[in-house]
Every structure is written in structure tokens, then in C-alpha cells.
Design a protein around this nucleic acid. Sequence first.
DNA 1: CTTGACCCTGACGCAGGGGCAGCCTCCGAG
DNA 2: CTCGGAGGCTGCCCCTGCGTCAGGGTCAAG
Lengths: 257, 257
Amino acid sequence: MLTIGELAAYAGVTVRAVRHYHAKGLLPEPERDHSGYRRYDAGAVVELLRIRTLAEAGVPLARVRDMLQAGGEEFAAAVADIDRRLEAEIRERQRHRERIARLASGDGLALPVEVVGFLDRLRALGVDERIVRAERDGWIPLAARSPERVAEWIARKREQLTDPEFIDFYLTLGEALDRGDDDPRLVALADRVAAYLTRLAEERGEEYVGDAGVEPALAELMDTLAFDTVPSARRLIELLNQRGWAGWTRLERVTPT
Amino acid sequence: MLTIGELAAYAGVTVRAVRHYHAKGLLPEPERDHSGYRRYDAGAVVELLRIRTLAEAGVPLARVRDMLQAGGEEFAAAVADIDRRLEAEIRERQRHRERIARLASGDGLALPVEVVGFLDRLRALGVDERIVRAERDGWIPLAARSPERVAEWIARKREQLTDPEFIDFYLTLGEALDRGDDDPRLVALADRVAAYLTRLAEERGEEYVGDAGVEPALAELMDTLAFDTVPSARRLIELLNQRGWAGWTRLERVTPT
DNA sequence: CTTGACCCTGACGCAGGGGCAGCCTCCGAG
DNA sequence: CTCGGAGGCTGCCCCTGCGTCAGGGTCAAG
């Protein structure tokens, strides 16, 4: 006759685990001796080891009970089911490893590589770090919502970066950051941006300018995000509005107010 | 300004999860409006997505908090740590898959292949199914306790099975199962077994006969296990005791009582 | 008689939320 | 102006597979 500790030792499990299996109904409660101790016969070791074998193979305890009673066919089906689950869990963790491998840099936290590359390009061009962060924060919800379109948008952005006018816009905006809303250079910037946009719309069409395809609600979100980080942007779109352009993330031509 | 539901939708998580992150201190509680609703700004979407990115990469929430605040070096170390954990979990699940793949047959539930093969051999020889089950149940704790020695013991058993005398022992024991303890054939069997053992001990040495190397406590366990399934075995060792052999799992020469 | 190793039950804790109850609030339609 | 449905709030219990107290009782040896 074995005590619970001896039983557990034979099967290589903890005493707590044995009691847990009793509580779950996997292992029948044995007789108690005069002082209330559980007393096991040798068969319990075998039962316990069978439970452990299934449990260690990744079978949830709730299914162990059924499987121990199941016949060959049912058992095989259950095994196949468990195997599929394990395979899925492995693949899940492999995806996690891939994702985590891309988290090395700070920007990578929620962004695909191409976006990180674009942000690094901005930095290399000397764009103010606050602007880069505003860009980054904008890309985060964008990439989360429409990951499949990120490559296309980034390609467009990269193309625009080949235009010195566009680069200058980023640089001047950075300079305007630390100045008040009524700085004359902000007005000059608005003039140049409006002219640039008009030229772009003529050359490539309004679709191209508008960053089309971003959902309105998301665009609005990204706008507020940008304004929170880069306050002068709010003033700038007011000025742009007077010059026939509304919006920020999505630009539209309007009649000047 | 976003409600909790909108925020959750942007990040692709449940409202419940957002509140959970508040409770865990991962996401700061935002301002409440006049009616007590949480009101989020656009930055919360970014914060939430960063949390999700880490969480989906398999980072435990408790570590997400630290990682979001950590600098590059610390962050990289944490990433490496998580990656090791994921790798270990993958390997664990791969082991599980291998194990359950071997659970196809009933006997396989807790036994290595060589033992299953041995049991099948017994069945093929016509040994009573109850005896096979008793053998199986004996091998279960044995294989659990000393898996590295199973191959050796099975080899010895298989060798013994080439001896017709040994096979006959199994067969006769099976016939004795359904008869009372005082059946004369049991006595005859005891005589033959004793003679066989004596001959074996002379040819191969007592070490060989004694199944040496099984811990005494384990041997005792296996004995009771055997007696529970095959009651006539208990009577048989009494008879053997009178013929100079004690034990069952571990046999020893004694002076007859 | 004490000590230390076991045993007992019951309860809380972990991750990452799900799902209820019971109430409050908002918004659009009639 | 009121009504209904959707959505918000807090707080509580539920899941897995045990680990880890807490607060006892029991047993064998010294």
C-alpha cells in the first residue's frame, strides 16, 4: 500500500498534481486509512503513468479523461486532433519568433521593414526627429489596418522623396516647429506647399496627391495624431485651406475660404 | 476623441482586452468624460498597437510594461530572452508530437516500442490476454523509472522466449488462471519452473536469473501489481518458495521452508 | 517528548482574457 | 419627447495546470 507521496514519486509527479487529478476526476479517489490518508495500490501507479504520458504529450487534462476510456478508433481520432493543435501552436510560435526578430530597433515595434527604411531615410535627410516620430506614429495604425497596402504607399512616398521640393517641405516644417503659429515662414511654407500640390495634381492627377484609399475615419485619426506631435501642422492646414487644399493625410482641393 | 470601443476596433482587440491592459498598468487610464466614459486620443491607438505587437510576439504582459520603457540595449536583451523561450516552447511541442505519434495503439500509452513489440510477441505465441496485460502493467513503472535499461531487459526477455520451456511457462500459467489455488497442475507447474530456474542458474549464473538491477521497492510494486491481475501467481510463488526460489520480479535462491 | 517528514483541506495566484449581471448613457427614429 | 438598441461602466466568477501558502493532524525515530 502506497501513500500519495510514494505514488507520486513512482510516477515522477508532484503530490499536488496527484490531488489535482483526483479533483479533476482523472484518477479515482482511493480508500482512506484510519487517519484519513489516501492509500493506493500498485495499479494506481499504472493509471497515473498513463495520465502523465498523455498529459506530457500535450493533451489537455479535460481530454485525458475521455481518451483513457476511448477505444482504438476514437483514440486515434483524438490523437490526430491533438497533433493538429500542437502543429498549430508550433507555427504560431514560429510566427512569433519572426515578429520578435524584427523588433530589434525602436521603430520596428509595430512597423514593417519598408516603413522603418523610409523613416531612416527621413532621418538621413536631416528631418527633425519629432517629425520622424509623427510619421512613425501615423504609419502604426495604417500598417495595422491595411498591412497589404503599406508597400504601395511607401513606394509612393519614396518616389516623392526624390523631389527636392518635397524634402524641403519636411525640413522647413521641422524648422517651423519651435516657432509660433504666426511665423511668416509658415505662411511662406504654405504658399510653397500649395504651389507644389497644384503642380503635382496637374502632373500626376488628383488621385495621386490625395493618398487615396485610406479610410476617412483612419485619416482623421492620423490627422489628430500628427497635430498632437507637430502643432504647427494645424496652423499650416488652415493656411493651406485658404489656398485651396483641405485635409492632411488625405488632401482634397476645395474652394478657398 | 475615441471611445473604448473605437480604440479597440482600431487596434483589432476586444474592449475587454483594453480594460485588462488598464488594470495591468500597461496602458495609462485616459480622462473620463462627464458620464464616466473613457475618452482616448489618437496616441492611445499607437500605444495600444505597440502593446499588441509585443503581446502577439509572445511577450508576457508583465514584461511588456518594462520593454516599452526600456532602451535599446535592455530591449535587445529582453528580445533575445523571449526568443529563447519561444524556441524552448517549440521544441517542447515537437517532443509532444513525437510522443503522441507513438500512442496510436493501446499498449503504446506509456511504453517504448520495444516493449510493445515484446507484448505482441507474447500474444502471437497464444499467451492469455490477462497475462499480457499483467506484463504490460509491470513494464509501465519499469519504463517510467529506468527507461535507459528497458532495451537491455527486453533483450533478455526475448532471448528467454526462444526457450520452449519458458514459453510453456507462460501458456500453462494462463491455463491455471481460471482454476483454484489448489489445482494439481499448479503444483506440477511449480516443479517445472523450479527445475527450469535451477538449470538456468547453472548455465547462466544467478545474476541472469534474478533480473538484477530493479530497485527492491519497485520490484515489490511490480509483484503486487502482478498478483492483483494474476491471482494464481501468488500461490505459485508459495510453491516455488518450498522449492528453493523466492520472489517473482526478482528471483533469489533460498533455503526451502 | 520532541522533531521532522508526511498527510489533510481550502484558498489564492499566474496569463489573458471571456462572459455574465446590473446599471447608466448616448444616439437616431418615430 | 420618448423609445429602443447599442454601447459604456464596475465587479464578479470562469477557464488550464498546477505552485504555494495557511493552518492544521499523524507518524516514526531519537
